[in-house]
């Protein structure tokens, strides 16, 4: 398998009144063709910014300032905004968290998909309409021809998210980036959307990056998981490895504090003390050290991702303390 996407040393800064603040600090990530990667982290860890930077959709005052992001042989960070616009949609599809604010409220949903098709694929309008209905059918919307004429507010939250997915798929992208697409949805609907994306991934042979804060959700979806903390990748491994033998203290703490339906019901869950640092206010050295029970003097230098000995060859962790214990 070859890497479809390879991010190396990505840094992202926010311009603040008192100078730039680093929010993403040297992220390394890669994604194979046909693979699905889960990016897990808490709010402000830079998971969304990392992905937005790939397609040039970072908000004002926030800029990718270093590193590279090779996508199918080209560096996305060096592309002109015109070329990026072509990549966006036709090669990389995006699904956002809130389908209500991401859809144009005064346009019929079918027309919104048609617009994407006409623009990205130079399709004629009637052909595009037929394709839009096909796409709505593909994402499991009943009576797609009728629903194409509906306005976003006439659809339920789950249906709107399906429309968003249809739009994300319109250009037949090789990579679909889903940014917390189920956070605003109820559990039963969330489960439907997760199933849908998994099916579509196999059917359309796409790679998928799914950004989430929910480890449990991603367990059923991703081949590989990257855990982010305060703008860096702290652990990166195949999904079974993350859940069977989490190695980084943060990953371990996160998994331990996760309540489950299986296993013993205990009233008090083990918890990680403290709170994640605010974006741009990362402590020096290992950003997790202030909350880490295992922190030592080594943690004052910034740790680098390194392979975990005796584990899966793709298992990497950024913690010299646990690595020392393992060797």
């Amino acid at each position: 398998m070859t890497a479809l996407l390879e991010i190396k040393g990505l840094t992202i800064d926010i311009a603040r009144d008192n100078g730039p603040a680093r929010v993403v600090d040297g992220i390394d990530l890669s994604l194979d063709e046909g693979e699905s990667l889960g990016i897990v982290g808490e709010s402000g860890c830079g998971k969304s910014l990392t992905m937005l930077s790939l397609v040039g959709l970072l908000p004002n005052r926030i800029k990718a300032t270093g590193g590279k992001a090779m996508f199918a042989g080209r560096d996305l960070l060096k592309m002109s905004s015109r070329d990026l616009r072509k990549v966006r949609g036709s090669e990389i599809g995006f699904i956002f968290q809130d389908p209500m604010t991401s859809l144009n409220p005064v346009m019929r949903v079918g027309d919104q998909i048609v617009e994407a098709l006409v623009y990205q694929k130079n399709m004629a309008k009637p052909a595009a309409m037929a394709r839009a209905v096909e796409l709505l059918d593909l994402v499991g919307i009943p009576a797609p021809a009728e629903r194409a004429r509906a306005f976003p507010h006439e659809l339920s939250g789950g249906m709107r998210q399906r429309v968003m997915i249809a739009m994300g798929l319109a250009g037949h992208p090789r990579l679909l980036i889903a940014d917390e697409p189920t956070t605003a949805l109820d559990v039963t609907i969330q489960a439907q959307i997760v199933d849908l994306v998994r099916e579509l991934k196999d059917k359309l042979k796409m790679s998928v990056v799914w950004i989430t804060h929910d480890l449990a959700l991603i367990a059923g979806l991703a081949d590989r998981i990257a855990v982010l903390y305060a703008g860096t990748v702290v652990e990166d491994a195949p999904v079974s490895v993350i859940f069977d033998r989490p190695t980084h203290p943060y990953t371990r703490g996160l998994l331990a504090s996760l309540p489950t339906l299986a296993g013993a019901a205990m009233a008090r869950l083990p918890s990680i003390g403290g709170t994640p640092p605010e974006p741009g206010r990362r402590p020096p050295g290992c950003p997790f050290a202030p909350r880490c029970a295992q922190a030592t003097a080594v943690c004052q230098t910034v740790p680098r991702l390194a392979p975990v000995p005796g584990s899966d060859p793709r298992h990497r962790v950024a913690c010299p303390v646990v690595l020392q214990e393992l060797t």
């Binding site: 789950g158 249906m159 559990v187 039963t188 489960a191 998994r198 929910d214 998994l255 489950t260 339906l261």
Partner: peptide, 25 residues
């Protein structure tokens, strides 16, 4: 029952085979 089965489980093996509730509220 449907609600319980829709809850994602932090277990990559258990998670992929569950009964689904059709439709929406």
């Amino acid at each position: 029952r449907a609600l319980l089965s829709a809850v994602p489980e932090p277990d990559p093996r258990a998670a992929r085979s569950r009964q689904r509730l059709e439709g929406e509220v």
